[in-house]
Computed example of a mutant assay.
Amino acid sequence: MSEGVATGRRANRRGLATRESMLDAALRVLASGDPTAVSANRIAKECGATWGAVKYQFGDIDGLWAAVLQRTAERRGDQPWRSDPEGPLDRRVSKIVETLYRGLTSPDSRAIENLRRALPHESAELERLYPHTGAELASWKHRWARACQLAFDGLDVDPVRVREVAAFIPGAMRGLVSEKQLGTYSDLEEARRGLTNAIVAYLGGHA
Results as ranks from 00 to 15, higher is better:
Glu113Gln: 12
Arg192Asn: 05
Arg161Asp: 01
Asp90Gln: 08
Leu69Gly: 02
Ala145His: 11
Glu164Asn: 10
Glu125Thr: 14
Arg117Phe: 10
Met173Gln: 04
Glu86Asn: 03
Arg117Thr: 15
Gly194Met: 12
Glu127Cys: 09
Val160Thr: 09
Lys180Val: 02
His132Ala: 13
Phe152Trp: 00
Glu125Gly: 07
Val162Glu: 02
Leu188Glu: 00
Gly77Ser: 05
Glu125Trp: 03
Glu136Gln: 11
Pro80Tyr: 03
Arg76Asn: 13
Pro131Phe: 04
Val157Glu: 00
Arg71Gln: 12
Leu176Trp: 05
Glu136Asp: 07
Asp156Ser: 12
Gln181Ile: 10
Cys148Tyr: 06
Glu179Ala: 08
Gln79Phe: 15
Gly77Trp: 01
Arg82Cys: 09
Cys148Asp: 06
Arg128Met: 05
Ala147Met: 13
Leu129Arg: 02
Ala135Lys: 10
Phe168Pro: 11
Arg110Pro: 10
Ser123Phe: 09
Ile169Met: 15
Ala167Thr: 08
Arg193Phe: 10
Ala145Trp: 09
Arg71Thr: 07
Thr72Trp: 07
Arg146Gly: 10
Pro80Lys: 07
Arg76Gln: 15
Thr184Gln: 01
Lys180Met: 14
Pro170Phe: 01
Arg192Trp: 05
Gly134Trp: 01
Leu119Gly: 03
Ile169Gln: 09
Glu189Pro: 11
Ser139Glu: 05
Leu137Lys: 14
Gly87Gln: 05
Arg110Met: 13
Arg193Cys: 11
Arg143Pro: 12
Gly183Val: 00
Pro131Asp: 03
Leu69Phe: 02
Leu188Asp: 02
Leu126Asn: 02
Asp78Thr: 09
Glu86Lys: 02
Arg82Glu: 15
Ser106Gln: 00
Asp108Tyr: 04
Arg193Trp: 10
Tyr101Gln: 06
Thr105Gly: 15
Trp140Val: 14
Arg110Asn: 09
Asp108Trp: 07
Phe152Thr: 01
Arg91Pro: 04
Arg110Lys: 11
Asp78Phe: 08
Tyr185His: 15
Val177Gln: 02
Ser94Trp: 09
Ala151Asn: 06
Ala151Ser: 05
Asp90Lys: 06
Glu113Ala: 11
Ala166Ile: 00
Val97Gly: 03
Leu119Glu: 01
Thr99Gln: 04
Glu179Trp: 10
Leu115Asp: 02
Trp140Ile: 14
Gly103Asp: 11
Glu190Gln: 12
Ala172Arg: 05
Gly87Ile: 06
Tyr101Lys: 05
Leu89Met: 04
Glu122Ile: 04
Val157Arg: 06
Arg116Asp: 04
Val165Lys: 00
